[in-house]
C-alpha cells in the first residue's frame, strides 16, 4: 500500500503513457467493430509491422543519440511516416485478404474471426522468419542489419535522448512521457474531428449506423470499409513509434499481448466509440499500474483482465457506450 502512495505520481504518469499506446491501438479495434461488428484479431500485427518499420528507419539512417535537434526531429518524423505507411498498408492488405470476400458472402462473424486469426499467425510468422524470407529472394546479406536474429528482441535506438523536464511528487517527468501523452491526445482529437466533420467520416458513421440504408443512400460501403481499416492502421503505426520511444524494444510476436490489452481498452471505453478508446486506454493503463503496485507486478495482467470482466458484467457497453453510429453530427 505504501508503495502505491510513495510512487503515486510515477505510477500515474507511466500508466498514462502505457494507456496512450493502448488507446491508439484500441482505435483500430473500435473503428472496425463499429463499421463491421467484427473483432479484427489481426490488428495487433498491424501495430507490430509499424513498430518494425520505425526500427528500420532508424537503422537505415543510423542516427546516434544526442544529434542536433533538427536531425532528431527529422528522423522521428520519418520513422513516424514509415510506421504509419506500413501499418496502414498492412491494414489494407488485411482487409483485402482476410475480410473482403467474407463480407461479400455475408459469412458468419465467427468465420471472419478465424480468417483474421489465420492472417494474424501468418503475419507474425513472416516477421519472425524475415531472415529466411530475405534469403529466399537472395538479399540475406544486403538486408542483414534489418533481418538478423529475427526471433529475438529487436532494439529501437531512440534518437531523442530522454531528459527530465520537471519533478512532481518525487518523479521526474521526462520529455518522452510528455510527447507520448500529448501526441496521443492530439491524434485522438484529430480523429474525432475527422469522423465528425469530413465526408469520409460521415460515411463511416452512416455505415456503422445502418450499412444497408447507407448503401441505399449512395455511400460506397467498400470504400468506407477500406478507409476504416486504413485509419485504424495509421493510428496503430503512430502508436508503434510512441511505444518504441518509451519501451525501446519490439519483437515479432509482441503484438499478441498488446493487442489483447488494446482490445480490452476498446471494450472498456465502449467498443465502437472513438473517444471511449482513449479513455479505456488510460483507465486500463492506470489500473494496471496501480493494481500491480498494490498486489505485486506479477498480477499485472490479471488486474487488466479482471477489470475487463467486472466492467463487462456491470456495464456491458463499456464506460461511454457503443456509439460510432450514434455520434452526434
Amino acid at each position: 500500500m505504501s508503495f502505491l502512495f510513495n510512487n503515486f505520481v510515477e505510477l500515474t504518469v507511466t500508466g498514462l503513457v502505457l494507456g496512450a499506446v493502448y488507446g491508439l491501438v484500441a482505435l483500430g479495434y473500435t473503428l472496425v467493430y463499429g463499421v463491421l461488428q467484427l473483432i479484427n484479431f489481426a490488428h495487433s500485427e498491424v501495430w507490430m509491422f509499424g513498430s518494425f518499420a520505425a526500427v528500420w528507419v532508424t537503422v537505415a539512417l543510423g542516427v546516434a543519440p544526442g544529434s542536433a535537434l533538427p536531425v532528431v526531429i527529422g528522423v522521428l518524423l520519418l520513422a513516424l511516416l514509415a510506421a504509419m505507411t506500413v501499418s496502414g498498408g498492412v491494414a489494407l492488405l488485411l482487409e483485402r485478404v482476410a475480410y473482403r470476400r467474407l463480407i461479400r458472402l455475408d459469412a458468419p462473424k465467427l468465420v471472419a474471426l478465424i480468417s483474421a486469426i489465420g492472417a494474424s499467425f501468418a503475419l507474425a510468422e513472416i516477421m519472425g522468419l524475415r531472415d529466411r524470407v530475405a534469403g529466399w529472394i537472395g538479399l540475406r546479406d544486403t538486408l542483414d542489419p534489418y533481418v538478423r536474429s529475427a526471433r529475438d528482441n529487436t532494439r529501437f535506438q531512440n534518437p531523442l535522448e530522454t531528459e527530465g523536464l520537471f519533478t512532481v511528487g518525487g518523479y521526474t517527468v521526462s520529455n518522452v512521457d510528455v510527447i507520448i501523452i500529448v501526441s496521443a491526445v492530439l491524434m485522438m482529437v484529430a480523429l474525432d474531428q475527422f469522423i465528425r466533420r469530413t465526408r469520409t467520416g460521415r460515411g463511416i458513421r452512416a455505415v456503422a449506423q445502418d450499412s444497408e440504408a447507407a448503401a441505399l443512400m449512395g455511400v460506397n460501403r467498400n470504400r468506407i470499409i477500406r478507409a476504416t481499416f486504413l485509419v485504424g492502421g495509421i493510428m496503430a503505426g503512430a502508436a508503434a513509434l510512441l511505444y518504441l520511444m518509451r519501451f525501446g524494444v519490439t519483437r515479432w510476436n509482441a503484438g499478441f499481448l498488446l493487442g489483447v490489452k488494446a482490445f480490452t481498452a476498446a471494450v472498456l471505453g465502449g467498443i465502437g466509440n472513438v473517444r471511449g478508446a482513449l479513455l479505456g486506454g488510460f483507465v486500463l493503463g492506470l489500473a494496471e499500474n496501480y493494481g500491480s503496485a498494490l498486489i505485486g507486478s506479477e498480477w499485472r495482467d490479471v488486474v487488466a483482465f479482471l477489470l475487463l470482466v467486472v466492467i463487462l458484467l456491470f456495464r456491458p457497453t463499456g464506460l461511454l457506450g457503443e456509439s460510432l453510429g450514434r455520434a452526434r453530427a
Binding site: R101, I114, I117, G118, A119, L123, L129
Partner: peptide, 18 residues
C-alpha cells in the same frame, strides 16, 4: 515454416470454405 503455413491454411479455409 509450419506456423506460417498453418496461418495461411486457416485464412484460405475460412475464405474458401466458410
Amino acid at each position: 515454416w509450419r506456423l506460417l503455413v498453418f496461418g495461411m491454411a486457416l485464412l484460405i479455409l475460412a475464405n474458401f470454405r466458410p
